[in-house]
C-alpha cells in the first residue's frame, strides 16, 4: 500500500510541475525531463511490486513523459494516412499498452542498476539527452533520448539503446504485423492487443 501511494504521490507531484515545463524548451529542461523519467522508472523498479503492476506504472510513465501521438503516428508509417479517426485512436491505445508491456518487461534488468545523464545537445529543433546505463553484470551502454516541445509540452519522442532506435524498430514491427494481415488495419490492431 505504501509503495502504491508513494508512486501516486510522485505522479501527482510531476503533474503539478507540468505547467512550468510548458515554457520554450532549452537544454536544462530537456535534461530535467529525462531525469524525471529516470527517477520515476527507478521508483517503480524499487517498489518491488508484481510485474503486472509495474507494467501498468510504466504505461503511465510512458503516457506522461513521451509524445505518444507522434510515436504512434510514426510507427504506423504511411498506412496511417488511410486510417480512419477511430482506427487511429484504437491503434494509439493498443500501441501504448504494447510498448509499455514490451519495454516494461525489459526494465526488470534495471534492478540494481542506474542511468546517468551524461550530456545534452541541440539537434535542429529538438534536444538529444545522452545517458549511460550501468547494469549489474554488464558493460555500461549508451541510452539516448530525443526531446521536443512539438506539442507545447516537453516530451521525449524517441529513444536509442546503443544506436538502436525505438521509432524505427516499432515501425518495422507494425509494418510486419500489417503485412501479415494483408494491410487490414483493424486486424493489425487486434493482433497488437493480443501481444500486450
Amino acid at each position: 500500500m505504501m509503495d502504491r501511494r508513494h508512486v501516486l504521490i510522485g505522479l501527482t507531484a510531476s503533474a503539478a510541475l507540468a505547467p512550468s515545463m510548458a515554457l520554450a524548451l532549452n537544454e536544462n529542461q530537456a535534461r530535467d525531463l529525462i531525469t524525471a523519467v529516470i527517477d520515476d522508472i527507478n521508483t517503480v523498479i524499487a517498489s518491488g511490486k508484481s510485474e503486472g503492476a509495474m507494467i501498468r506504472d510504466f504505461e503511465r510513465i510512458f503516457a506522461r513523459y513521451s509524445d505518444t501521438s507522434y510515436i504512434s503516428a510514426y510507427a504506423m508509417g504511411v498506412d496511417g494516412r488511410r486510417a480512419s479517426t477511430a482506427q487511429k485512436r484504437a491503434f494509439s491505445d493498443a500501441f501504448q499498452a504494447y510498448v509499455a508491456q514490451k519495454y516494461g518487461r525489459r526494465f526488470r534488468e534495471f534492478i540494481g542498476g542506474r542511468l546517468e545523464v551524461k550530456g545534452v545537445r541541440r539537434v535542429k529543433r529538438w534536444y538529444e539527452v545522452d545517458t549511460t546505463a550501468f547494469l549489474q553484470g554488464q558493460a555500461p551502454f549508451n541510452v539516448t533520448f530525443h526531446v521536443s516541445d512539438r506539442t507545447g509540452q516537453n516530451l521525449f519522442f524517441n529513444m536509442f539503446i546503443e544506436g538502436v532506435n525505438l521509432l524505427l524498430t516499432e515501425r518495422t514491427e507494425i509494418g510486419a504485423l500489417l503485412d501479415q494481415n494483408r494491410g487490414d488495419i483493424d486486424a493489425m490492431i487486434a493482433d497488437l492487443r493480443r501481444l500486450s
Binding site: 510514426y74 485512436r89 539537434v123 521536443s148
Partner: peptide, 14 residues
C-alpha cells in the same frame, strides 16, 4: 535515421 524530425509528420487523430 538518427535524426528523425518530430515536426515533419501529421499526428492528428493519434
Amino acid at each position: 535515421s538518427q535524426e528523425i524530425d518530430p515536426f515533419a509528420l501529421e499526428t492528428e487523430g493519434f
